[in-house]
Design a protein around this nucleic acid. Structure first.
Lengths: 234, 234
DNA sequence: CGAGAACTTTGATCCAACGCAAACTTGACT
DNA sequence: AGTCAAGTTTGCGTTGGATCAAAGTTCTCG
């Protein structure tokens, strides 16, 4: 296996302000893995042997209910931690992580977590800040699901994706990985049919452009207004 | 103000295994407060000046949307921390906390949090375990809201309350604080009307007994079956 | 104890979104 | 360039719950 260079992770918030020597020590304990599109990084209910840092690509974190329905908990972008069950005092993963595109991840043995958090306080507190931020996001989503209509929820979901992974194109801001109607439905608690109808309607109004596994937001402002509940007359 | 005795907090998980002298040091920095029913412990968007430990009573944590709709994020029971915005790196509270009954809380200045977490590792890691546990619960709720029907969600909510604060009576297990149809609706993303109809139907089947601001679960097992999606023929 | 506020029940109507079904489009692979 | 799988669109009937409306109950407090 090739040596890992510290420049891989030096710029990442979670390793911010860490001495080069420490970065090297941390990297020595990591393996780097390539995960092909549609392969899982880790699996729900599985033994939490490792935790991960996404270096490149996009990963969706999915919870499956006993009767087989799926809910997309979040998308992970490069630089983010995932599978940090150990930091929460769990021994199994509460969800599965699936590569949305070909990915590169770093993996550390899960039982190393306490040691790393203790040796590198920034890393420890950074992890907890991540967990705290996710708690807030997740609570915001509960409020959304409990109070908003489907149209507003889907609009919010698209805006979040655009903010997280949007890439400017001539047509607008493109969500930078393949995403299907079904995926959007699983993020918002609706069906792919309803998502399809919404996207069609929005496309007619010029708010978005979308195709097979592809969504571009053309007019974020108007979509935002719609997400906030103001009807769009376009 | 009367001196606070360490026996107040010695038994609480978050202070578990801490030396008596340390408990005293911690208590020296705390104020104890009585919060009358329906008064707020802290307010959404307010400056996070303190964090709290609930000693006695029950508190509901509520998020209000811009258009005035309310969502009950969780109920806090004695021994639990609340208002730990500081631990998440926030400076304002993300929700309001309202006393469901007369309560007693301990309050510490928020800026003391980093210091306390550093001086008392058990306390620090305990807090993070709390945050992690809440993240998991909240994600479970997202899945519920996204995949279940109202009837199942309400059943789950009641079972959670029963587990958290249930008190045995001759009739069944009573939820140990006043809770209205409206409250249950705000926990589950529905309306008080629907909750009322469900409770009436369940009462006819002998699953629960309920009255004004009061719910007793008579047959937890059958209610659980219902929560899991098996229709109840009773 | 009487009046009013707060909470709950129940009925009637309506509609957003689901479920089902079938056709259509796009891309991938041979 | 043809076939097939995967993804998407669209139409239509159905329905779970919301909304609207009104009456009934149970507390509280002067």
């Amino acid at each position: 296996m090739s040596r890992l260079d510290r420049s891989l992770i030096a710029g990442m918030p979670i390793f911010q302000g860490m001495a080069p020597a420490d970065l090297d020590r941390i990297l020595q304990k990591a393996r780097s893995l390539r995960i092909a599109k549609d392969q899982t990084v880790f699996e729900q209910e599985g033994e939490a042997h490792s935790f991960f840092l996404l270096l490149d690509g996009h990963v969706r974190v999915v919870k499956t209910t006993p009767d087989g329905q799926q809910v997309i908990v979040r998308y992970i972008s490069p630089g983010e931690l995932m599978g940090i069950a150990h930091a929460l005092g769990r021994t199994t993963y509460p969800a599965s992580a699936v590569a949305a595109v070909d990915c590169v991840v770093l993996a550390w043995p899960g039982n190393l977590w306490p040691e790393m958090a203790a040796s590198f306080p920034n890393f420890g507190s950074g992890t907890y800040r991540t967990v705290g931020a996710r708690l807030q996001e997740t609570q915001a989503r509960v409020v959304e699901l409990a109070t908003e209509q489907v149209e507003q929820r889907v609009a919010h979901a698209l805006l979040r994706l655009v903010k997280q992974t949007g890439r400017k194109t001539e047509e607008g801001i493109l969500i930078d990985f393949p995403i299907s109607r079904q995926d959007i439905a699983e993020m918002t608690g609706t069906t792919l049919h309803t998502v399809s109808r919404l996207l069609t309607a929005w496309e007619e109004k010029g708010l978005v452009k979308s195709g097979r596994q592809k969504v571009t937001v053309v007019e974020p402002h108007r979509l935002f207004a719609l997400a906030e509940g103001q009807a769009d007359k376009g």
